Simulated scan of single mutants.
Amino acid sequence: MLSAEGPWYTERVPLGRSDVTVSRLGVGTAPLGGLFSAVGERQAADTLEAAWTAGIRYFDTAPHYGAGLAERRLGAFLTGAGHPRSAYTVSTKVGRLLVPGASAPGDEAFHGAPGLVRVRDYSAEGVYRSLAESLERSGLDAFDIVLLHDPDEHWEEAVTGAYPALARLRAEGAVRAIGAGMNQTAMLTRFVTETDLDCVLVAGRYSLLDRSAADELLPACAERKVGVLVGGVFNSGILANLAPDAMYDYAPAPEAVRRHALALGACCAEYGVPLAAAALRFPLRHPAVTGVVIGARSAQEVTVNVAHITATIPEELWARLDAMERNG
């Protein structure tokens, strides 16, 4: 299926009730900040160039990713290439301030990051400072979307401090859409039902291994016309790599999870479909989902992801995978 301007995954679609649009396939920049292993400057630039050439126009970043490294690399690519600002959409996040400190190699799973440490801050002042510093690091004139990042243990501060600050920035036109990005669904559902978000980014909770977002979060978003971006579709890697040392939710995969993933892979293989292709396409079957955000650390990974999202997947396979979920 092709749009008027390119493959269907490059279609720019509205994000919730906002005037922001995102491509159906977006690129997450955590790997470019050295998640799990270091990435060099040239490799990072080539990765972003491959995404742009493929027609991807939505990019997600955060101060957390490499302690600012991902923001700097993304901004350098977008501004250095001279792409018109209206041609792409960028989201960043607030909730972690970066302060000078001795960070060890691989600190918080990131490698190659500068000597900075992360300090949680979901106050209004923390939001303004974080956003100002992100703009300085990236060299961008504005971010289209700003997300509260992982406020798991900080609900009160986030809902009384950070959220009102983001709503104020949106009302002033400093940002165009606001939301929250988390690895859980319960608090995201609270944000959707108790505040006025434009979107959520839910990671790892709407995948072939974990469909829990479909219970409450996705229906709440559909009812309130809140855009849904889905990240972590490979659950930290296991649905893209069934090796014995595969990762699940940022840790070595438990044996039961690995067995389930192997069964899913075997089912997909019967139809000649890579498990990663089914995992990447799966979230887009739900009408509440606006787009998927996939991390990449190389141009080759971008090419593979594009091949997977454009793969032909028979309805019979979806029915089989759905039945496996229902039957446990």
Score class of each variant (00 low, 15 high):
6 G>W: 03
9 Y>P: 01
13 V>N: 02
18 S>G: 07
21 T>D: 10
35 L>D: 02
37 S>H: 15
48 L>D: 05
50 A>F: 01
52 W>D: 08
52 W>V: 04
55 G>Q: 13
64 H>P: 02
65 Y>C: 06
65 Y>K: 08
84 P>G: 10
86 S>L: 11
87 A>E: 02
88 Y>P: 11
91 S>Y: 10
108 E>P: 03
110 F>L: 05
112 G>D: 12
113 A>Q: 14
115 G>D: 14
127 V>F: 10
128 Y>M: 06
135 L>Y: 09
135 L>V: 08
138 S>P: 02
144 D>N: 04
171 A>G: 09
174 A>E: 15
174 A>H: 14
175 V>W: 00
176 R>G: 03
196 D>L: 01
196 D>K: 05
206 Y>K: 09
216 E>L: 15
217 L>C: 06
221 C>L: 07
224 R>K: 07
226 V>R: 06
226 V>M: 13
231 G>W: 05
240 A>Y: 07
243 A>T: 14
247 M>E: 11
250 Y>D: 06
256 A>H: 12
258 R>E: 02
265 G>E: 03
274 P>F: 10
280 L>K: 08
282 F>R: 07
284 L>I: 05
289 V>Y: 08
302 V>Y: 12
303 T>K: 09
312 T>D: 15
322 D>H: 12
322 D>F: 05
323 A>G: 12
324 M>G: 08
